[in-house]
Design a protein around this nucleic acid. Structure first.
Lengths: 209, 209
DNA sequence: CTTGAATGTTAGCATCACTTACATATGTTA
DNA sequence: TAACATATGTAAGTGATGCTAACATTCAAG
């Protein structure tokens, strides 16, 4: 975690100064420790040192605060995947794999955030931040396809499966389903091998190697 | 849903007769309608026509009831995947794909159940039912591998990626992430194509076609 | 300096999960 | 059948929760 609730500008007297951010940071910490459901408004208020009514000046309700947290998560995830991409040649298989591994690593490091971002059916995505996140994947796939001119597949027909693979790996891992059913799973290797095999299959469709 | 809370043996006088099952069915319905979190003990009690203290004669707490629901889910999922497998030749690629599609279809039909089964980090799996569920996949992969003798891969190195693919597809779909980012996604085709490409990649490793 | 908007507080509501003490039914044994 | 232990229900209460309403304080613009 980059910042903590304690880091956030302290309350001085009657007014807090930056309650909104302090509450988001507090929620982030609480959620990281106690899980997505283990977070209560009251706890966040105690952490920020304000009364239990104060948050409602900044957030319409509990879900509104959680949505703000989700946006923060998408911003972090975008940074992480972009950084991973930039470390490898444009359009290379390694770049695609590294991006996928960064996605999974984010899910590990920020599992509560990850669940909040992707695991709430009714979540109203606020466009910009998460579209940008998906856009990074699309761009990467476009670059991959342009390196292999024989491939005629639409970008989405490659991007969506890739997302599916890494999201499945991340979800199964952080919800401890591997721990129960396949405890020896090395998730980095899983992502690398599965992505590699998938891309091999894609190239095979075009008669490439 | 096969049964409803209303179906369950009615309460006659002081004693209910089958409160445990009635509560599980009620929870199943509530969760299907209002989502995993939208379920309260109080609602389940109202549906079953008992006081709010009654459930605690049958379940230690709320989570215990939810665990019972999860077990029910694993039983249903096992039936579904086994049925899908049985409809295709032993060890065929079609069988593997059909099983994956059945997994995703279950997630669609019983999304709340699916989340309860796989989406709770602290969930204490009760062995039998969910191990059996995973065992069906393992058996299917064993059959696939024995049809392709050149393949030397361990069962798990094929089974885990397959699980990853279908779980990713199911999760992204039911949590409406496709609806936001990739609205045109046909999840049956996604599973079929991705599985096919992955298996092509696996076969390529052994120099097969 | 005044005044209005922003941001905080206190007190309270309805609901929730869960507990305790008590009531009723069931079934086994005499 | 009578008596009793056990299983299963109820009523009432506890502390916590999300959220609201009414009121208090501070800030910032004229």
């Amino acid at each position: 975690m980059a910042s903590t609730a304690a880091d956030t500008v302290k309350k001085t007297g009657y007014h807090h100064g930056s309650l909104r951010e302090a509450l988001i940071d507090a929620a982030h910490e609480l959620v990281s420790v106690s899980g997505t459901d283990g977070f209560t408004m009251a706890d966040a208020c105690r952490a920020a040192g304000v009364s239990t009514a104060a948050p409602y000046r900044h957030f319409s309700d509990r879900e509104d605060l959680i949505n703000a947290l989700a946006s923060k998560g998408f911003t972090i995830l975008s940074e992480r995947t972009q950084t991973a991409l930039d470390a490898h040649p444009l359009g290379s298989t390694e770049a695609i794999i590294a991006m996928g591994q960064a996605y999974v690593q984010f899910a590990i490091d920020e599992s509560a955030l990850f669940r909040i971002m992707f695991g709430r059916p009714g979540h109203t995505h606020d466009g910009p931040v998460d579209s940008e996140c998906f856009g990074i994947l699309l761009k990467a796939v476009e670059n991959f396809l342009s390196v292999h001119p024989a491939l005629k597949q639409p970008v989405m027909s490659v991007a969506v499966p890739l997302w599916t693979i890494v999201h499945g790996a991340a979800s199964l891992l952080i919800d401890q389903n591997f721990a129960v059913m396949a405890p020896d799973t090395d998730v980095d290797a899983l992502v690398a091998e599965t992505t590699q095999r998938f891309l091999t299959g894609v190239l095979a469709e075009a008669g490439q190697s």
